[in-house]
Every structure is written in structure tokens, then in C-alpha cells.
């Protein structure tokens, strides 16, 4: 085969840069509409919710890496938030135990999905009711408060670079190193690419699936905690929008639903893009409230369509 091999590489590079490009585009639009927003405090304000969104996206990414989909991550984040605002605040040890239990529950969910070869979409759909119900039981009315250390962590104001930006970079690096550079990370991704090859090479698919879900649970808990640290009070529905945001973030960041193809750095950038596009941009564009949701949809369509056009692999024919 002497056919040119450079082509897929260029396409892949373009595709890898696309999330960053869309982020720059959104930032550019904001800078054009309101130059004052591009400042330390502007970013602090605009990226207010970016940290929990990025954490949720990373959580979803681990699940997608194994060819599954978690439709319960939003309510789960909500439940973790409710626990943070109540138990973790009132009796830290008990709260920590419950949150650790949440991670264990996620690992168990992964085991159930693997052992019974269940469709994750449906299992997590069921689980979304469970987490929502638990959240309502823990916190029937909006309220609660984050532990002081968490609230002060989330309102840190480091010199020069706003905290959300620092946190996002740190998160991207950690996720990238763990999944893309470690030797077990390769196995985790491989299970999404060709599970039977991984099993044949002697690896336990059960352990892999449990690891992926436990990681999703861990980052989901962190997302819930970060969210409460920012909002300073919880309500049972606080995380519901995160399911769709997290999936969109992963895909926007260059991930695919099948084949174990994910990009941790892209996912974090995708989450930042969504966080910016979701409210600050629309506010500056002075979109009437009726059309805000629709504008969100339109932005998603535009960015993903651009991604697909660049990443186009040649049609079936």
C-alpha cells in the first residue's frame, strides 16, 4: 500500500484542534460584544459554573470510553450536591462515607452492566430516577450549605489567572495523563475499541468496566461538591441539566459514542465552550428569554456540524 498516509493525520489534527477553535470563536464573539468581559473578573463570573460542568463532562467521558452512556449523571450530581450541603456540612465523616459509597455504587453499576450485558442507556435511565428520589429524600426543600473549606476553595482568587481556568487546566491534565498516558489507561480505552481483543489478551472486562464507572462516580461526586461550593445551597433538581451538558461536552470535545474514542483535553474544552455559550454569550447577544433554550440548541448544532464536516471520513459509498 503506497497510498498517501498523511491525510488521516491532518484530518485528525484538524479535528483535535476543533474544540479549541470553537472555544476561541465563542470567546471572540464575547470579546466583540462586550470587551470588558475579557478580564480577570469577567472570566471569574462567566466561567462561574464551568468547573462542575467540566467535572461532569470528564465523568461522562470515562463512561463513553467504554462504549456506554450515563443518562443518570445529572441527577447523580444533584444527589452528591444534596449530600454535600447536608451530611458533609453537618457531620463530615458521615458525609464522606456516603460520598465514597456513591462511588462504590457506580462501580457496582458497572459490574451489573458488564455481568448481565445490559444496555447502559436503560440502566442509567432507571438510575436517574433512583438518584433523583434519593436527592428529594435527603433534601425535600431547597437549602443546606457547603462546608466552609469547600466554599472558600471555590471562591479562591489566585493572582493573574482566574480560578476556574486554573481548575480546568489542572483537570484536563490529570484526566489526559490518567487515560491517555498511563499503561492501564490504554487498556481502559482498548475495552471500548475491541472488548474481545482485550479479554483475549487476558484482561478482566469486569474490572475494566468497574474502574471506568468508579471513575465516573468519583468525578460525578467532585462535580456535585464543586457545584454546591459555588451555589452555596442545594436543591434536589440542581444537577438535572448536567446529563445532556456532559454528553454534549464529550462529543464537542472530539469523542465518539462508539469505539473508545475520547479526548480528555477536548472534553474539558468542550465543557468550557458550553459553559460560555450557554449563558454569557446569549446574555451579551441580548437574546430574549423565550429563545435562550433554542439558541443553545442552535449553537450545539452549528459547532457539531462543523466538527462533523471536518472529521468527515468519506461516506459509506
Amino acid at each position: 500500500m503506497v497510498l498517501p498516509q498523511a491525510l488521516p493525520h491532518i484530518r485528525r489534527l484538524m479535528r483535535a484542534l476543533l474544540p479549541a477553535f470553537s472555544l476561541v470563536l465563542v470567546l471572540g464573539a464575547i470579546a466583540y460584544l462586550n470587551p470588558r468581559a475579557i478580564s480577570y473578573f469577567g472570566f471569574n463570573l462567566m466561567l462561574n459554573l464551568a468547573v462542575p460542568i467540566a467535572l461532569a463532562t470528564v465523568a461522562q467521558m470515562f463512561v463513553i470510553a467504554g462504549n456506554d452512556l450515563d443518562l443518570s449523571i445529572g441527577p447523580f450530581i444533584g444527589f452528591a450536591g444534596c449530600v454535600t450541603a447536608t451530611w458533609l456540612h453537618d457531620s463530615p465523616l458521615m458525609g464522606a462515607i456516603i460520598l465514597a459509597g456513591c462511588v462504590a455504587a457506580y462501580a457496582a453499576l458497572g459490574a451489573l452492566i458488564q455481568l448481565r450485558s445490559l444496555p447502559s442507556i436503560v440502566v442509567t435511565l432507571g438510575m436517574s430516577f433512583v438518584w433523583q428520589g434519593l436527592a428529594i429524600l435527603v433534601l425535600p426543600k431547597p437549602g443546606g450549605a457547603p462546608p466552609d473549606w469547600l466554599a472558600s476553595l471555590m471562591s479562591l482568587q489566585p493572582p493573574l489567572v482566574p480560578f476556574p481556568v486554573l481548575a480546568a487546566v489542572g483537570l484536563a491534565l490529570i484526566a489526559w495523563f490518567g487515560l491517555m498516558r498511563t499503561s492501564y489507561g490504554a487498556i481502559l480505552r482498548g475495552s471500548g475499541g475491541n472488548a474481545s481483543a482485550i479479554a483475549r489478551a487476558g484482561w478482566s472486562l469486569l474490572k475494566i468496566k468497574m474502574a471506568l464507572f468508579a471513575l465516573a462516580g468519583l468525578f460525578g461526586v467532585l462535580s456535585g461538591m464543586a457545584l454546591i461550593g459555588i451555589t452555596t445551597s442545594a436543591d434536589a433538581n440542581i444537577g438535572n441539566g448536567y446529563t445532556l451538558l456532559s454528553i454534549a461536552g464529550v462529543i464537542l470535545g472530539g469523542g465518539e459514542f462508539m469505539g473508545g474514542i475520547v479526548s480528555p483535553v477536548g472534553a474539558v474544552i468542550g465543557a468550557l465552550t458550553l459553559a460560555l455559550a450557554a449563558s454569557p454569550l446569549l446574555t451579551f447577544l441580548q437574546i430574549p428569554p423565550d429563545w435562550q433554550v433554542g439558541a443553545n440548541g442552535a449553537i450545539l448544532i452549528i459547532v457539531l456540524a462543523a466538527r462533523a464536516q471536518i472529521g468527515r471520513k468519506g461516506a459509506l459509498t
Partner: peptide
């Protein structure tokens, strides 16, 4: 059309379109 012409995965395509439909509904059905 979103799925085929723009090659957006169905889950995201139908989700995005549902946002737009919702807005239309809110604006129209108010």
C-alpha cells in the same frame, strides 16, 4: 436532516432540535 446532512449523532441532533422546538413552543404558545 440534522443527522444525515450535518452528520450530528442522533442523540445530540434530536436533543438540540428539541431545544429549538421548545423555544418555538414557548414563543408561540405563550
Amino acid at each position: 436532516l440534522l443527522i444525515r446532512a450535518l452528520r450530528i449523532p442522533p442523540i445530540i441532533a434530536t436533543l438540540s432540535s428539541s431545544f429549538i422546538i421548545q423555544s418555538v413552543d414557548i414563543a408561540y404558545g405563550r
